[in-house]
Design a protein around this nucleic acid. Structure first.
Lengths: 149, 149
DNA sequence: TAGCATTAAACAGCATGCTATGCAATAATA
DNA sequence: TATTATTGCATAGCATGCTGTTTAATGCTA
């Protein structure tokens, strides 16, 4: 009859997401970063000089969301946008020195925030939990997401 | 060194949350409801006539978030706010007829959206997964959240 | 009882996410 | 080659979440 939040995978996942984001934000704030900015940076740290389109695809958010986030990152001096040499529609997103310098610290605190989440389970179950999350994401992307045309 | 999103419990949970919210939104839209509105309604369906403070505590969001959501729900004709008989600061939030009529359908589609999420796992693992989510939420609330003073 | 603290809501301002549109540049095709 | 389709981004507008501040009503206490 009624809806039991405490047994809803979606509601529980959303709550974990909110608490994780808050934990990460508290740790990133001293570095001048936000959670979404961190994700973009982590992509650029592994490969600098990507187009907005590539970043959008790899992080799995909508193009407009990425455009807004990149706008804030440019405003905050984390990235620069330079014209694409071959395609005048596109731009190359590249790290500033300031952003490059944050990699070690930011990665460390992000790992810490994730450890806090996993810390809710005994070590013996953590690996299985990660595996379950991964399988669910794959299934949802395949089933509910936009079909890859 | 670098940050691996695909092994981050927080990132994966956030992604499941986004995909779940989208799946739920698609199903609720024909009823004129949004995911956050559904959660408030589900609370009111089980006990009508609560104060904003009670709803805030039970759904675990901030007071300001709840005030905004209730504002949209009032605008959309789902709830009414009436003065509290004993406390002139407070208001009683009660369901409109229209909102009361949606319970069965809305609950059904929400269950469906949750089934889609759990569907990413074999049935044998679903119960364990729910238990893990619940334990993590409890641990995070206790550890990182605002201490219950 | 006067004054301070607490509580219930509202409001302001911001970050992230989304959809829908619009625009310019590039590609494909009739 | 002229049209049409596609692609890469930007913008607008909205929902949800947060923090911080303000206001009004209540409660407590010296």
């Amino acid at each position: 009859m009624s809806f039991d939040k405490s047994r809803s995978a979606g509601v529980l996942a959303s709550e974990i997401a909110r608490l994780y984001t808050a934990a990460l934000q508290r740790r990133l704030a001293p570095l001048g970063l936000s959670p979404a900015q961190f994700l973009v940076l982590s992509e650029l740290w592994s490969e600098d000089g990507q187009t907005q389109r590539m970043l959008t695809a790899r992080l799995g958010v909508e193009q407009a969301t990425m455009a807004n986030t990149l706008g804030r990152m440019e405003r905050d001096g984390q990235i620069e946008r330079r014209p694409h040499p071959d395609d005048r529609r596109a731009q190359i997103v590249s790290l500033t020195e300031a952003a490059r310098a944050l990699e070690a610290q930011a990665t460390a605190v992000a790992r810490e925030a994730n450890a806090v989440v996993l810390g809710g389970l005994p070590v013996a179950e953590q690996e299985l939990f990660l595996s379950m999350l991964g399988r669910i994401v794959s299934a949802l992307r395949a089933g509910e997401g936009v079909p890859p045309s």
